[in-house]
């Protein structure tokens, strides 16, 4: 199977700011790839270069076997971060127009549009003007416009920003459905939870550099869990005996529970057995590192001086701030 996208040494600068630096990337056909990183990391710039909306200063890009996405536009579904609708156009007419633009045959079908509208629970808006819809509804319409021509490659830039949890779940299922159908999916987000729920492969970008490019399972394995959450059966019980266990490095109190960090190289399974034997527990849980933890770890290990960790973490959770056009 050939690769859907390959990037080779791609660099893009805006004035003095390097938005993307020497990026190599291979996205195999059928994969679901997540681009993650804080706002302004270079995700949107990378995606725009893949879409041939921007052009790299140097490096090669190949999309679906073509030198430029322009040659394969009809096989790509692209949901940009900066997206809008024709305010005065009717929803049905807009979707049919987008399908006509994107299909090779230049045709569109009312029944297909209706089918999609029903699927996202907006069957009654076909004859409404786009400006009458709420922001969440508009987002769903935009998603339909992205997939209505059944693209082989789906590129979604921050697809979930501004959606409530219910609609986010709906959209996530639709994305996963496209993936199951065999489409290659790339989507970017600055919210790590979303990436963990959808992707099987993660590419992390920070400040224009690719800092991680790996399978989600491999990432979890590589960043092996070394923290155990412990909650004693009796509230306020003494946990000092745990400190003397051979695999325990230290204990920190975090509200009602404690975080027990393990020594490097120790076996988590063995450690849990030791802890349960040493103190009666209501909860003992191996704490899997979240992508957020991993990202923060990479950034700090990378020696980036003066990183404000709290700010960084906030940026990776916070969905409110829309990303700039970087």
């Amino acid at each position: 199977m050939s690769d859907a996208i390959t990037l080779n040494g791609v660099t893009k600068t805006f004035g003095t700011k390097v938005a993307v630096r020497d990026l190599d990337l291979v996205v195999p056909t059928g994969a679901i790839y997540g681009f993650i990183g804080p706002n302004g990391a270079g995700k949107t710039t990378t995606i725009r270069m893949i879409m041939s909306i921007l052009f790299p200063d140097c490096g090669q890009i190949s999309v679906l076997g073509h030198e430029s996405a322009l040659e394969a536009k009809d096989r790509i579904g692209y949901l940009p971060e900066e997206r809008g609708l024709y305010k005065k156009m009717k929803v049905g007419a807009f979707l049919m127009y987008m399908e006509r633009l994107k299909r090779d045959s230049g045709t569109s079908s009312r029944s297909r549009v209706r089918g999609w509208l029903e699927k996202v629970g907006l069957a009654d808006v076909e004859n409404k003007k786009c400006e009458e819809l709420s922001k969440g509804m508009q987002q769903k319409i935009q998603f339909i416009a992205t997939v209505i021509h059944e693209p082989e490659l789906l590129i979604l830039d921050e697809p979930f920003s501004g959606l409530d949890p219910v609609n986010m779940r709906l959209l996530r299922d639709l994305v996963l459905e496209q993936g199951r159908k065999g489409s290659t999916v790339i989507f970017s987000t600055h919210v790590m939870d979303q990436a963990e729920q959808i992707c099987d492969h993660i590419v992390m970008i920070n400040d224009g550099d690719k800092v991680l490019d790996d399978n989600l399972d491999d990432i979890r394995r590589r960043f092996d869990p070394r923290t155990i959450l412990f909650e004693s059966l009796e509230i306020g019980a003494d946990v000092t005996p745990l400190e003397s266990l051979p695999s325990v490095e230290g204990i920190t109190r975090k509200g009602a529970h404690h975080e027990i960090s393990l020594k490097a190289g120790s076996d988590p399974g063995q450690a849990i057995r030791e802890i349960v034997n040493a103190a009666p527990a209501s909860r003992v849980e191996l704490h899997r590192p979240t992508l957020e933890d991993i990202f923060v770890q990479i950034v700090t290990e990378g020696g980036t001086a003066g990183v404000d960790l709290d700010n960084l973490r906030a940026g990776l959770r916070n969905d409110a701030a829309a990303g700039g056009a970087s």
């Binding site: 879409m51 041939s52 909306i53 322009l70 536009k73 009809d74 790509i76 579904g77 692209y78 949901l79 940009p80 971060e81 900066e82 997206r83 809008g84 609708l85 024709y86 305010k87 987008m98 633009l101 994107k102 935009q142 416009a145 992205t146």
Partner: peptide
């Protein structure tokens, strides 16, 4: 100007050059 300010333009650019 309308297409640009309503941000529909990049959606269009996903389909046309």
């Amino acid at each position: 100007v309308e297409e640009k300010s309503s941000r529909v333009v990049e959606v269009l650019l996903s389909a046309v050059s």
